[in-house]
Design a protein around this nucleic acid. Structure first.
Lengths: 239, 239
DNA sequence: AAATGGGTTTGATATAGGTCAAATTCCATG
DNA sequence: CATGGAATTTGACCTATATCAAACCCATTT
């Protein structure tokens, strides 16, 4: 009835509910076993924990089972740029492959559990399992596309558009995980939102208030309810 | 004395001067032959040509032998974000792997020659040649790191800092290719620089003029001479 | 040599968002 | 339940960059 290991659950990849998000590959029984072996390192993390810091040696990717994270790069004068917010089923650490050293910090914004994937073993297995190889490539490419969209956002959108795009993105991702796409709980501060969107926290706050005045949202601290999805969408336009 | 094929030179990968930049992998003779077979598709391109457009099916990556390119994503209201400027030895098209459809436009800013690499065959070969696999992963990861740095630039740097970072980056890349790191010829318009840096063309122009007044640069249209590299570096600070 | 047109520079003015500061709310902890 | 600190909101003011407009430069064509 109970797990045999209380501190480090060994839920295998094959039985993981996030399988479709994380590593959605059709495998033979044998390959499934090998993937399970590769991803058996589970670990709980607490709010505030660093998964890794910039400059540390790269060994593993991290798949998020539960929890919410941010990745950020710091300028030496203290300015920080949040490069992304990650949630369950998403994978952190791809930027470190290029140099075998982590290029950013990854911080937990709430308690959760991660699954550590030794990269050299993932590479080895993906040489033998074309579906896994293909998936890994798509994962990295998707990150590139995501980054290009953020460049578009930062380079040529106004504050309202940035915030609308941000909320719609969260809504879509929460929705895809079976949560409400309209009642969002933000796990990050206004400051962190600002550091992601290239805005100051006051501007984030003001813009949220303004959306509320116009009946687009109900905002109460970190609870955001999207009241008018269509009008919110009309702000961002799209590519 | 003469090339056997005047319109479509078949210079193999193994004899290509860009080998170190493009696919720097140690291979056996047999593998070298297979890589050569894979990259035998060379093609000249003219200024203004599109390598591909957003929405087109993805088949191949493109390695730049000579020439200069920009990639951009368009917002439907006409705003455009340049996601990068690419030069010899660099590879375009990684963003299309995620969906098998190109996510941006790639445009030649001067005449050049590209080398087309069918992606499914590259994947197949990289399954058998670990060094090639590793290199491909590093290539994609490096693009992610590059994008994160641009996010930092767009999200939290002032116009002067952005432009200084841009010029230093060009300088470094030209230098690495054996050209002068101080006498740069820009192949793009002020408008295109602005669309990359999230600035209007007037701001780009004014900032260049201002750098010139302060003795950092000599600017004459698209000729830029860096006069004070150190002081230019002090603008950007670094991560 | 004049005309055309794209790219660039420069000036005057407007504005979105930043900065600084104060008041308020919300937790966490004793 | 009181206290202190962090996060948030809101206001007043400021500034970096955008906008609009004109002049200029250079390359190319006629």
């Amino acid at each position: 009835m109970q797990s045999t290991s209380h501190s480090c659950p060994r839920t295998a990849c094959s039985g993981c509910s996030l399988r479709k998000l994380c590593l959605p590959v059709d495998l033979s029984d044998e390959d499934t076993g090998r993937l399970d072996a590769l991803t058996s390192l589970k670990r709980p993390v607490q709010r505030g924990d660093y998964l890794f810091r910039r400059g540390e040696d790269f060994r593993s990717l991290f798949a998020i089972r539960t929890g919410f994270f941010k990745t950020q790069v710091l300028h030496k004068d203290g300015r920080e740029q949040v490069t992304g917010f990650q949630m369950s089923g998403e994978i952190i650490g791809l930027d470190a492959i290029s140099s075998d050293v982590h290029a950013c910090d990854a911080v937990a914004l709430e308690d959760g559990e991660i699954c550590e994937i030794p990269f050299d073993r993932l590479e080895a297995l993906s040489r033998e399992v074309p579906g896994l190889q293909r998936h890994l490539h798509k994962l990295m490419s998707r990150e590139i596309v995501r980054d290009h969209n953020i460049m578009m956002l930062l380079g040529s959108m106004r504050a309202e558009e940035r915030l609308a795009a941000f909320l719609l993105n969260l809504s879509q991702r929460f929705g895809a995980r079976g949560h409400s796409p309209t009642a969002l709980y933000l796990r990050m501060t206004r400051q962190e939102i600002g550091n992601y969107l290239g805005l100051k926290l006051e501007t984030v706050s003001r813009t949220l208030s303004q959306f509320q005045e116009h009946g687009l949202l109900n905002v109460r601290l970190r609870e955001v309810e999207i009241m008018d999805m269509l009008r919110l969408r009309s702000f961002v336009g799209g590519t």
